[in-house]
């Protein structure tokens, strides 16, 4: 723990990140597709476009909570949710609509796109990060958490 950033966990963050990147590498080299969670989620529930196998999408999406549960068996995983239902619903609507319109989220554009040096993903990542920073700053200024 350092005193400048009391809650930070850089080591675990980096290790967890390596696993996320490894998973992306398995999807790319093993199956020839991008580990973009928004796209795979849409495909899994039958709303996605494209020709990707629905079984593959469903399997990947099923794996996400499975892997998280495995970690939770070994060590406690603290998650703190926003208390407001409205915040969760509005956030969910924007994330669902926005990731489809923008063809990707933190995993597809962020992890897979940035590492590919894709200009399109760099632009998307810069924009959603800027919007995220601005939104939290605005909420703080308005006293909404």
């Amino acid at each position: 723990m350092n005193t400048l950033f009391p809650g930070a966990m850089p080591g675990m963050g980096f290790l967890g990140g390596l696993l996320i990147g490894l998973a992306g590498a398995i999807m790319l080299l093993g199956l020839g597709r991008i580990a973009g969670v928004s796209g795979l989620a849409a495909r899994a529930v039958g709303i996605g476009s494209g020709t990707d196998s629905r079984a593959v999408a469903l399997a990947f999406i099923t794996g996400l909570p499975l892997g998280a549960a495995l970690v939770a068996v070994v060590r406690p995983v603290a998650v703190t949710f926003p208390p407001s239902l409205a915040v969760l619903v509005i956030g969910g609507l924007l994330v669902g609509f926005g990731t489809r319109l923008g063809s990707g989220c933190t995993s597809g554009h962020g992890v897979c796109g940035l590492s590919r040096l894709s200009l399109r993903s760099m632009a998307a990542t810069a924009l959603f990060m800027a919007a995220g920073f601005a939104t939290v700053a605005a909420m703080r200024a308005l006293g909404w958490g």
Partner: peptide, 16 residues
């Protein structure tokens, strides 16, 4: 894909 998803999910949980 299930294996990749599980590794991805483990990474998310581990990293915070």
């Amino acid at each position: 894909a299930l294996l990749a998803g599980a590794i991805f999910g483990a990474g998310l949980a581990l990293s915070g």
